[in-house]
């Protein structure tokens, strides 16, 4: 009987371990699909409107023009409001970011200590703005699966330089676009929720046209709306340079 019990326990453990490994493998594979979907266009140019809404409902507006190429290069330039017009952010990787401040006539490299700061008052950090490949820093496992959604838990890989203890991502399996991402701070408390609302195909690519980042601790949120989206315009690498960052548009 005792031997029989030992066998059953071993069987259960092995089954759970295998299931966990499978879930993890599936999770990583799903995460790769998500990234492949989000980063599918060769390049993207769009106007992004940002509404910064505080807990009293007061609204501040920002408008940026965003250039993206592949899954690493981004250039963001502020068009509004007037007091930050011309400010630009160049991202070549999560370790290579530069900020151009026209008032000072200078481009400044952003050190990693700044990456967890809110980007120009929004609820997105510099790191969030640079993040295009979660799989480089996180390991994903499936928490729940249904025909309409897959819930993943993303935990940081050993040694990964991230500001969150985990992310919980709900993916739409029909288009492989995240519907919602929860960001948990280092103490394990829910910090922010990203909700992707309007998702549509633009130039044949699934594109999130409206997303809301809500800081549940600060009771503040930022709503991003994309317009004038263009894909595969043949953006040159020269756009993603300090030369172009400094250039007037």
């Amino acid at each position: 009987m005792k031997r029989h019990l030992r066998f059953v326990s071993l069987f259960i453990l092995t089954t759970f371990a295998a299931a966990a490994a499978l879930a993890q493998n599936d999770g990583n594979a799903i995460l790769k699909k998500v990234e492949a979907t989000l980063n599918a266009p060769k390049d993207r140019v769009a106007i992004m409107s940002m509404k910064l809404i505080d807990k009293n409902g007061n609204v501040k507006n920002r408008v940026v023009k965003i250039y993206q190429k592949g899954d690493d290069k981004r250039l963001i330039r502020f068009l509004k409001p007037a007091d930050v017009k011309g400010v630009g952010l160049l991202v070549l990787s999560d370790n290579e970011m530069w900020l151009y401040m026209p008032a000072f006539h200078k481009i400044r490299r952003i050190a990693s200590h700044t990456k967890n700061e809110n980007f120009m008052g929004t609820d997105f950090t510099y790191d969030d703005m640079a993040q295009t490949k979660y799989s480089e820093k996180y390991t994903a496992r499936v928490l729940q699966q249904s025909p309409d959604s897959i819930k993943l838990e993303l935990t940081p890989k050993p040694g990964a330089d991230v500001n969150y203890s985990k992310l919980v991502m709900v993916v739409d399996p029909h288009n492989w676009v995240p519907k919602r991402v929860e960001f948990y701070d280092k103490s394990g408390s829910l910090k922010k929720i990203l909700t992707n609302s309007r998702v549509a195909k633009v130039d044949g690519y699934w594109t999130v046209q409206e997303m809301t980042m809500q800081d549940v601790q600060a009771k503040h949120k930022t709503v991003l709306t994309l317009s004038d989206v263009k894909h595969d315009t043949g953006l040159a690498n020269s756009v993603f340079t300090k030369r172009f960052l400094r250039r007037s548009e």
């Binding site: 400044r108 490299r109 050190a111 990693s112 200590h113 700044t114």
Partner: peptide
């Protein structure tokens, strides 16, 4: 020069 050293901007 400008960069970072062990996370500190220098």
């Amino acid at each position: 020069l400008a960069g970072e050293f062990h996370g500190v901007g220098v």
